[in-house]
């Protein structure tokens, strides 16, 4: 589905540099790109979307080289949710905003088909359609942006720090919507994210970057327990994983609060039973 072959971008020590990275993401995966600021995460996300073209190597989306694909053609398959919704929103009502993206991409669809799709999306997000985006809160605006991306029914969703500036509840709203798409429509998700707790709760695969290089690639659970790797990328594991690592043997599988509670109470009870 997404294939990067020896991709490099940029020159010198620029923070947007990516150096010779290769990976393959299958349909239906939920991958997170992790790393400190300036590690090359956003550049990688933009390379996948085709907003940036690699200076070396190639990026294939569904077998098509992004360097040779037209913008509108690619936007039909790949949706991109930016950190700042205000760069995307340009219409006066939520309905027009959602329709705007659709008309740009579904060029052959009739007006009826577009209107029907807009209504569907409005309903599933609980918008009336007449709201003015700029009078909504930041979290609501991010949901408008998400709605207009989802409307296109992309096969691939790229999220660039989708939860920055949102509170916990807004963040959960957005992420739950994306998780549902991932599970029900097998939408492939690639997410750049700083919040390790969000990554731990939603993503299944993690790509770790630092200084433009890809340092690690594997299941989130395994990556979060690789302390040496996280340290090299200046990352910290989620609290519960860190606690489990410090506690050592017996806590290898305690990744969530529930699992940790269970593990602790089991051990405590055994001790109480006088073993």
């Amino acid at each position: 589905m997404i294939l990067l072959e020896n991709v490099s971008f940029g020159y010198g020590d620029d923070s947007s540099t990516v150096r010779d990275i290769s990976f393959h993401i299958e349909r239906g995966e939920f991958a997170a790109i992790l790393g400190a600021n300036g590690a090359g995460k956003t550049t990688t996300a933009k390379l996948i979307d085709g907003l940036l073209k690699p200076t070396k190597g190639r990026v294939l989306i569904n077998g098509l080289d992004t360097a040779k694909t037209r913008v509108s053609e690619r936007a039909r398959h790949v949706g991109y949710l930016f950190q700042n919704p205000d760069r995307q929103i340009c219409k006066n009502t939520v309905r027009e905003e959602i329709a705007f993206g659709l008309t740009a991409v579904w060029q052959n669809a009739g007006e009826d088909a577009i209107a029907r799709r807009v209504d569907e999306v409005l309903e599933s997000f609980g918008f009336s359609g007449d709201e003015e985006p700029f009078s909504l809160s930041r979290g609501e605006r991010q949901r408008v942006a998400l709605a207009s991306v989802i409307a296109i029914r992309p096969e691939i969703m790229i999220l660039d720090e989708p939860t920055t500036g949102l509170d916990y509840r807004e963040c959960t709203h957005i992420m739950d919507t994306i998780k549902t798409m991932n599970e029900e429509q097998k939408t492939t998700v690639v997410m750049v994210c700083h919040d390790m707790e969000v990554v731990a709760s939603y993503a299944t695969r993690a790509l770790v970057m630092a200084g433009g290089h890809l340092l690690g690639d594997g299941p989130v659970k395994t990556i979060f327990r690789d302390q040496e790797l996280l340290k090299r990328a200046s990352l910290l594991p989620p609290q519960i994983v860190e606690l489990a690592l410090r506690l050592g043997p017996g806590f290898e599988n305690a990744d969530t609060v529930e699992e940790m509670t269970e593990a602790v109470s089991a051990r405590a009870k055994r001790k109480g039973a006088g073993v």
Partner: peptide
């Protein structure tokens, strides 16, 4: 009310 807690606090 929409304020999460550190995971260790939930633990």
């Amino acid at each position: 009310i929409g304020v999460n807690c550190p995971r260790v606090a939930s633990l």
